[in-house]
Design a protein around this nucleic acid. Structure first.
Lengths: 224, 224, 224, 224
DNA sequence: TATGAATGAGCTTTCATTCAT
DNA sequence: TATGAATGAAAGCTCATTCAT
C-alpha cells in the first residue's frame, strides 16, 4: 500500500525505520550496560546510522529513554487493567489474574525498568513516570482490597493504600529478582505462590479461596 | 586523654578526619544527586579539602562508594541478626522484631541503597554487595519459615526461599516507598501492618498470633 | 578540477587537512620542546583546531608521534636504498652516495629522530621502529663491506656487522652533531670527510679510491 | 674514627646515607624506566624513605639527575685523560688506550647517559653537561690527530675537529649499541675493531701500525 | 632530619551537542 | 534526512612541591 504512494512517503518510511532502529538499539544497549555508560555513538552505531543522525530524531539521550519507557508504561497500564475483567465476586481469581499479568509485564521489561529507576532518582520527569507505573498496579490492588473488606472477605484492620503498596512492591520486586536463575519456579508456580501470599496477607476469608480454604486451594493448585 | 597517645597519632588523626569528611560529603552528595552526577570536585569541596586530597584517601569515586556502602552493609547485617535473640517459639514476635529492625535499617539508609542499586546494574563488584545485603534478611526469613513449617505453624506448601525473597522484598520496598510522605503511617504502624501481612501470607497458625488469632492480634495492636 | 570529484570528498578533504595540520603542528612542537613537554592543547592550538578535534584523528599523543615517525622512516628507507643504483665496481662512489643520501635524510629529520630516541628508551613499539631505521643503513653498509672484502678491496679482518654498525653510527651521529653550528662544513665537505673516514676505516684498496690512492682522492676532491 | 665522635655526627652520617640512597634509587629507576616516567614517590620508596624526605636533599627531580650525571661525568673525564699517559710517539697504542678507556666508561654508564640525552634535548643546563662529556673525548682525539698530522703520520686533508667528532661519536654510539647482545664481541675485540677503524680512517701511516702495516697489525692482534 | 597529608596546576580523555555540507 | 568533522565543557586523575608536625 504505502509502496504505491509516490514521493515523500518512502522517505518518511525510511525516517520511521531510522527512528525505531534508534529506539531498539537504545533499549538494548541501556538494558545491557546502563544509561550513563552508553554513549550516543554506540546507539547510532547500533542502529546503523551515523552519529549526527541521532539528533535528527531525538533532542537528547534522555528524550530517547523517555520514548522507550513511555511505550513500556503503556503496556504495563494495559496489563494492570486486566484483572477487572473477571466478575467482582471471584476474589481469589481476580488477585491471581492481576498478579499474573503484572508479573508478566514487569518481567518482560525488567531491565529497562531498572534503568528507569536509576534515572528516576536523579531526574524529576522520570520520577513521575515511575510512580505512575507503580500507581496503576497499586490502585488496582487497593480497590480490590477495599471491596473485599466491605464484603467482609478481608482483614478490615489493614490500611488499604499501604497494604496495596507493600503487596504491589512484593510482586514487582519478585519479578526483578526472578530474572536471576536463583529461584527455580516457572511462571505458573510463581503466580501461585505470590497469589497465596497475597491472599493470606490480606486475610482472605476461607470461602474465597478456591476449594473453600487455604489447604484446599493448595490441593487444587497441585492438580492444575 | 588523646594527648597521652604517643607519636604518629596526631597526624593520623588529621588523616582520619579528612577521610571521614570525604565519606560523609560523598554520601550526602550521592544521596542528593546520584552517583554519576557528582564529581570528585564537589565531594572534595564538600569535605573542605582540595580535589587532589581525595586521591590521597581513595583510588576512585567507586572506591569511595564501596567504602560507604560497606559500612552500611555492616549495619544492616547487624540489624538482620537481631530477630534471633528472641525465644524460638515466639513466632509472631520474631517476625515482628526482624521486620522492625530491618525496616529501620533500610529506612535509615534508603537513599544510599538506591545509589548502590543503580551501580549494581553496571558494576560486578557492587552487584555482589547488593545481593549479600538482601540475602542476609532473606535467609533470616527463610530459616524462620522452615522452622515454622516444621512445627506445623506455617503453610507447608510454600517454597521457603521464594517466599522469603518475596516477603523480604516487600519489606525492603516498603521502606523505600515509605520515604515519600505518601503513606501516613508511623514506624509502629508500618511494622504492625508489615508483620500482619507477613504472618498472614505464610498462613501463620491462629495460636501463634498474639491473642490467639488474627482478630485478637488486631485488638492487641490497637491497645499497644 | 577538484569540483569534478563527486560526493564525500570535500568533507574528507577538510578532514585530511585537519589531520595533516595536526601532524605538522605536532612535529614542530615535539622538535622544539620535546615529547612529554608538549600537551594536546598546544598541538591542537598549533593546528588551529580545538583540542577535542585532536581525538577525532588520533587516539593519543603516542599515536600522533607514531604517524610522524612512520612517515620519516619511509623517507629514510628510501634514502638508504639509493646507493645501490650505482655500478657495483664503483666502491668509493657507492660509499659516497650512500653517505650523502643518509646524511641528508638524517639531517633533515634530526630533531624528530631525537624525540623518537627518547621515547624508544621507554616504549617498546618505538624501540622497534628506531632499530629498523638504523638497520636499513647498517645492512646497506654491511653488504657493501662484504662484497668489497670478497673482491679483496677491504680489510678482511673486519667483522662486517660490527664494522657497519660503528660506521653507520658515525654518520648518523655526525648528522645530529652537525645541526649545531659547531663544525663549519657544508654538505659536500661533510660527505667528503665522512666518506674518506669510512673508506680509510675499512682499508679500501688504493685502486678503489678516486685517482688511484688516498692522496689523489684528496686532490680530486679539492678540484670538484 | 667517625664512630668515636659524639653528638651531631651520627645524624649527619644518617643524612649522607639517605642522600646516597636517593641517588642510587634514582639512578636505577631512571635507567630502567626513563626520567619523566619515574615519580618522586617511586624514588623515595626505592630509597626506603618517605615522600617528603626527598625534598630535604634535592630541590627537584632535575637536581637529582644533575647530581647523578655530574658524578658520571667526572668518571668519564678521568677516563678520557688516560690516553695521554703513553709516550707521544706510540700513536696506535695511544688511540687504542683512549678507545678502551672511553668505551669502558661509556658502556658502564650507557643507560644513564641516554637519560641525560633525552633531557639535554629539552633543558639547557643538561645540554651543556652533555656537550662537555663529549667534548672531553673529542678534544683528546683532535689533539692526537693534529699531532699525527704534524708528524706526517695522518691524512693532512682531514679537518681535525670534524674528524674527531665523527670518530668520537662512532666509539660512543658503538658503546650504546653494544649493550644489546647484537654484536658478539668481547671488550678486547671491540677495542681492536674500533681502533683499526679509527687508525684506518685517519690514514695512519704504515709505520705507526703495530708490526709495520695494517696486515701485520692484524696478525699481531690475533696472537695477542 | 624525617614525615606524610595537603595542595592545585595541569594532564589526557570523553562525549553530548552543533552545524556546514 | 543523513553525515561526520568540529566543538569545548567537564570529567577523572597525576604528581611535583609545600609545610605543619
Amino acid at each position: 500500500m504505502t509502496s504505491t504512494v509516490p514521493g515523500p512517503l518512502p522517505a518518511m518510511a525510511r525516517g520511521r525505520r531510522t527512528k525505531s532502529a534508534l529506539v531498539q538499539a537504545g533499549r538494548q544497549l541501556f538494558e545491557e550496560h546502563g544509561f550513563s555508560t552508553v554513549g550516543i555513538d554506540a546507539i547510532a552505531h547500533g542502529a546503523g546510522v551515523s552519529h549526527g543522525t541521532f539528533y535528527t530524531w531525538f533532542d537528547s539521550k534522555e528524550a530517547l529513554l523517555r520514548e522507550i519507557v513511555t511505550g513500556v508504561a503503556k503496556e504495563i497500564f494495559t496489563a494492570t487493567s486486566i484483572g477487572t475483567r473477571l466478575p467482582p465476586d471471584a476474589s481469589y481469581a481476580r488477585i491471581e489474574a492481576a498478579n499474573r499479568s503484572f508479573l508478566r509485564a514487569v518481567t518482560r521489561h525488567s531491565r529497562i525498568l531498572r534503568v528507569l529507576d536509576s534515572q528516576a532518582d536523579v531526574r524529576e520527569d522520570f520520577r513521575g513516570l515511575r510512580l505512575e507505573i507503580r500507581e496503576s498496579f497499586v490502585r488496582c490492588g487497593m480497590e480490590g482490597l477495599i471491596r473485599m473488606q466491605e464484603l467482609g472477605l478481608a482483614d478490615p484492620m489493614l490500611p488499604p493504600r499501604a497494604t496495596a503498596s507493600a503487596l504491589g512492591a512484593m510482586v514487582e520486586s519478585f519479578a526483578h529478582l526472578w530474572q536471576d536463575p536463583v529461584e527455580g519456579l516457572d511462571e505458573a508456580e510463581a503466580v501461585d505462590v505470590l497469589t497465596r501470599l497475597w491472599a493470606g496477607a490480606i486475610g482472605l476469608a476461607p470461602q474465597a479461596w478456591p476449594g473453600g480454604d487455604r489447604a484446599a486451594a493448595a490441593t487444587e493448585a497441585l492438580h492444575e
